[in-house]
Structure formats: C-alpha cells, structure tokens
Design a protein around this nucleic acid. Structure first.
Length: 571
RNA sequence: GCGGGUGUGGUGAAGUGGUAUCACCUGAGGUUUCCAACCUCAUGUCGUGGGUUCAAUUCCCGCCACCCGCACCA
C-alpha cells in the first residue's frame, strides 16, 4: 500500500465515522478490536445488502430461508469438525490455578495427544495423572475447549452444557436437513440460506472490516444428487468474460461456461454459483473490473472439498476473499449422520427396479427359543453370519462369546427371499457459496467513494448503487418560506411512508452545500422544491452521478422513486 | 502473539507541569437563493486506569484502540 492509498483510506474511514456509516464499536468504553457498529446510515446499508442477497437466491424458487440460534451445543460443532479444527483444550491446575493445554500435558505419555477428543483427553488425564508443569501438583479441574470459537454455557453452574457461539451459519442448514428434505417433498436439488452473525475470536483482527470477531455472513447450502448431471442454464453468461485464477496456471480471461467445458471449473453447480454470484455482486455495485475468481490450491483446500473458488474483490487492502464457493461433497451430512446416528440422506429411485434373490439363514424362534433361552439372540446372530447355509445336522456353532452350541435342523429356518429393490439412500453432495457480508459492504463503499476537485475544493461523492443506498432521496426546499418548507415536509413524509423508501429533509445552508452533504453519503436523487413548485406542482431532480437536473411533476417523482426507475426520467 | 508508530471537540490539526488554541463541521438567528457564499451567536475536546507532584492533557507505568511490519489464521 502506498502512502497515498493510506491517506485515502484514512480520509474514507473518517468520513464513514463522521457520517454514521461505520464506527468502531463501544467506542465510549475504549472500543473493542474486531467489532464495528453500523450507524444510522450503515445499519440501513447492511440491511439492504442482506435483502438483495436474500431476494437474489430466493428468486431461484428452490431455495428457502431458515434461521437458527447462534448459540450452538458443543456436540454440533464437534461433529462438524470445528472443535478439533478451531479449539485447543485447556485444563486448570486446582492447586496453582495455572491453565495448561490438555494435549501438552500428555505429550510424553501419549503418541498423538493432538488427535484426542475432549472426552478422551479427560479420561487420559484422569488415568495417567500428569503433574502440573508449574507447581507439580496432580489435581486437575474441568477440561475446557478454548480458542477461536467463543465459548459459553447452556444452563447454569455445573449442570450447564458446554456450547459455542457459532463460527459460521452453515451448520444450521445441515442439522435441518431432514426438515428441508421433507419441505421439498423429498426431491433434490434444493437449497437453504441463512443470513446472520458468525463469531470467531481472532487472535489479531486487522484491516478494518476485513477480519472481524463478530461478522455478518450469508451462506447457502445447495444439496444435489452427485450422480445426476446438474442442469444449469448458462445462457445469460455465454459471452461475459471473467478473470479466473486456476490453481495450476496464470490468470485467464474467459467465460464461465467455457472454463467449465475446459475442465478448469470442475463442477457445473460450482460454475453456476460463480456466475450467479458475480451477477449479484455487480447488481450491488461491485466494480466488474475489480472482481476475480481464484481457485484454491489442492493443498489449501479442506480435505473434503473437491473444488473451491473464492470471489476476490480488489480494494484498498488488495485482493480480498469475499465469497467462497466450495463443493463440499458429502462431508457435512455424513459427519452429522455418523455422530448422531440420524439418517441425513435422500432417496434415489433407480430407473429399473432390481430383483434380488438371497437366502436367509436364521433361527426358527419357536424351537430355538426354548432350546437356547438366553443365548437365543446370540445364536441368531451367529447363524445369520454364516457364509453358506449349513448342510449337515447337528453341527457345532461358535457364538460371539466363544461358547459353542449344538444346532439341530429344527432350530434352523432357511428362506429364499425374492426382493425388488427400487432405489437407494445416498448422502447428497453440497455446494456452498459463503458470503462475508461485511467484506462486501466494505468494498461497495471503497469502490463507490470518489474524491474529486470541485472549484478548487476537495469534493467527495459516494456513488453507491441506488439498490443499496441507505437514503433514496433528499428533499430540499430552496428556501424555508412562502410554503416551500411545508411542501417539502409533505413530500418527505410521503416518501418515507412508502414501503422500503427513506428520504432525508435538509433545509439548512445553501443549496450547493446541501447537494454536497447528500453526495457525500451517496443519496442518488435530490429533489428541490422552489417557487415554481408552489405554482405548478413540479420540482427539480438532480442526479448524483452527473449532477444533471430535470424538472417534472412531484407525483411522477414519487412514483419513479417507489419503482426504482428514476433514471428513466432523464432519458 | 512479537516489534515499531500514533491517540487533543464530530473531522483535521496546534500547544503546555498551573484545566487548552485554530480551521472546518454541526446548531440558532439574519442575509442570499439551484452546486460547500456571507455576518452574529452557540454547543462541544486532552483514549483509559494507576503512579509521581501542591498541581498531570503534559513526566512514568499498565490497559484499550488505531496504523505499519512479522507471525498466526477459513
């Protein structure tokens, strides 16, 4: 970063703070690193970005929105792998209160203490009794997981259950898989999204809003059948070229369908989400020339992922990863299924049912039951495990507890079973686009903020897309007399009463100053009420981006603002 | 986490062992009336906690935050 860039960044941050867009959190208490407040303008900006994001995906028709708690029981995040990946286990010496890493205590005792679960560590410490490295005592308290996830307790005191505040929203989509599968009437593909906060206790939050301890995320999990060719319509993007940075070569400039055909993007659903993500980012106001997609190296990719592309946006801090689009395979559903024993699968009908014949060897309960009594269950198990049906009777059968019993023919039932199998249960694969909302908001602001020179003075304009601008229009009475102010206040009130529209009323200072104030926070339209407005119900509209003015009927202005079609007035 | 730098009204700065000055911004009144005009008045500051001192915004120490390296990190 050059000194000029640094200075610009400083001026931008000071504007964001001064105008109530983004401010350091809890500042009157000295602040808290890695946390920001969205102020009176920023709060609305964030909400509009979230809404656009939601509408974009929900409009697909096969994607639904859910919302899950941020406080998440320990087991959920242990199943997902976060406890192992994100945590260290800490245990305190009851004698000297010094906290130690539990796995470090077992270093000389256990070959690989790093791999142990929390319970295993507790058991190992209880049985091996390592001494406290500080005071030598052997009295250990409760083991606790600690580190990048914020730890908390569900319930009070010692009966409380350990939990974390979620490090990502994704797990809620996985734990809700059965409800989602049912909602979509058991038919893939489908997706679920969640917009909300995520928390990571970063060692060192840096770079403004780029690395936060509490952050806004928006994640989509799209569940697909790995054996069915995903059909996606790429026609919208057949000519639009993107900068792609594949794992094995230099940046290429090509279309997404082409990269898919060339095998650079490895899965059609990943490609489709890349294209759709780009469209969404452009709609919000990201500069198209400052977007690229970078493929994860196979070494940096999480072990379960088969392809992962980051959408990176160029801003004051360089290329920053703002969206990750990962093909996660069946990892997550399988992990929760293995941990809980609940079925997290979808059913696939085969094109043709399969007939299968098999021979079932089991006990005849009516004879074997009385004969073997309490051993009957074990006999059944052993019989069913036999490689081939018995041919001679009686014969000796070894049970799982090594005891040997003699089996008569009357104890055995042999059945030939004809089965028709119509399909199978399988674990769906998932493609996950995960958005860092704060990082996107930062880049929207960074790209939109332009410093210009105007009549020898520094002049700054925030050219936010009207789709995200916190304030839709400013109403400016040229003078506060002769009824102009009243007319302006009425217009202001009627604009604010429209769904989703916010206006600002500003009557102080010269008109030029008021335009400047509006430009600085990105208000796209200024409506000026003057003498003529009183006579014929018209007003002037000034367009932020080229300062062009037109005059038209006030009713037309409000209707066009409501419909987001103001530009058409200028044509 | 380590090393370096920085914290003075909303913003940007000046300054001091004896409670702080300036510009812009903001607000009120006047004037003007379509791109930061002008006049008068007003609000508002030494990041935080401790120490030294008769007295600390100033000196010392801790903490917090921000910036820059390094390290760590989906």
């Amino acid at each position: 970063m050059t000194q000029a860039d640094r200075d610009r960044l400083e001026r931008l941050n000071s504007m964001l703070k001064r105008r109530g867009i983004i401010l350091p959190a809890f500042e009157i208490h000295g602040g808290a690193a890695g946390m920001y407040d969205f102020g009176p303008l920023g709060g609305r900006l964030r909400n509009k970005v979230n809404q656009i994001w939601l509408n974009h995906w929900l409009s697909q028709g096969d994607i639904v929105e859910i919302s899950c708690p941020t406080v998440t029981p320990f087991s959920v995040l242990e199943a997902s792998g976060h406890v192992g990946e994100f945590s260290d286990f800490v245990i305190s010496c009851l004698a000297c209160e010094q906290a130690s890493r539990a796995d470090h205590l077992l270093e000389d005792i256990h070959p690989n203490p790093d791999s142990l679960s929390m319970e295993e560590l507790a058991n190992e410490i209880a049985s091996k009794n390592p001494a406290c490295p500080d005071c030598g005592a052997v009295e250990w308290g409760q083991i606790e997981a600690q580190n990048l996830m914020f730890s908390t307790t569900l319930g009070a005191g010692s009966s409380g259950r350990q939990a974390f505040i979620r490090p990502e929203t994704a797990q809620g989509m996985f734990t809700n898989f059965p409800a989602l599968y049912r909602h979509f009437r058991q038919r893939l593909p489908f997706g679920a999204v969640q917009v909300g906060k995520g928390y990571r206790n970063e060692i060192s939050p840096r770079q403004g809003m780029i690395r936060l301890r509490e952050f806004n995320m928006a994640e989509l999990e799209y569940f697909i059948d790995p054996e069915e060719n995903s059909k996606h319509d790429f026609s919208k993007w057949s000519t639009m070229k993107f900068n792609l940075v594949p794992d094995s070569s230099d940046t290429i400039n090509t279309t997404i369908p082409q990269a898919l055909d060339d095998g650079i993007i490895r899965h059609p659903s990943v490609a489709w989400f890349m294209a759709s993500t780009a469209e969404l980012l452009f709609h919000m106001g990201i500069d198209a020339s400052k977007l690229r997609f970078r493929q994860h190296e196979s070494t940096e990719m999480a072990h379960y992922a088969s392809d992962c592309w980051d959408a990176e946006i160029l801003g004051s801090y360089g290329w920053i990863e703002c969206v990750g689009i990962a093909h996660r395979g069946c990892y997550d559903l399988e992990a929760h299924e293995n941990y809980t024993g609940q079925r997290l699968r979808a059913w696939r009908d085969w094109p043709e049912p399969v007939q299968s014949k098999r021979t079932l060897v089991t006990i005849d309960g009516s004879t074997a039951g009385p004969a073997f009594r309490s051993q009957a269950g074990a006999v059944k198990e052993a019989l069913e495990k036999m490689d081939a049906p018995p041919t001679t009777y009686p014969f000796k059968l070894t049970l799982s507890d090594s005891s040997i019993v003699e089996i008569q023919q009357e104890h055995v039932k042999i059945e030939d079973i004809d089965e028709t199998i119509n399909g199978e249960w399988f674990t769906p694969h998932v493609v996950e686009p995960a958005f860092g909302i704060d990082r996107i908001i930062w880049h929207l602001l960074d790209h939109a903020w332009n410093e210009e020179e105007k009549n020898g003075e520094q002049y700054s304009v925030l050219s936010l897309s009207p789709s995200v601008a916190p304030i839709d229009a400013a109403v400016l009475p040229l003078m506060e007399k002769d009824g102009m102010d009243e007319l302006a206040l009425n217009l202001h009130a009627s604009l604010c009463s429209m769904n989703g529209i916010q206006s600002s009323h500003d009557a102080s200072g010269s008109i030029g100053r008021r335009y400047a104030r509006a430009d600085e926070v990105g208000i796209p339209w200024c409506i000026t009420i003057d003498h003529q407005s009183l006579d014929d119900g018209t007003a002037t509209v000034r367009r932020r981006d080229d300062q062009k003015q037109i005059r038209c009927k006030i009713e037309d202005i409000t209707l066009h603002i409501r419909d987001g079609k103001m530009n058409s007035l200028f044509e």
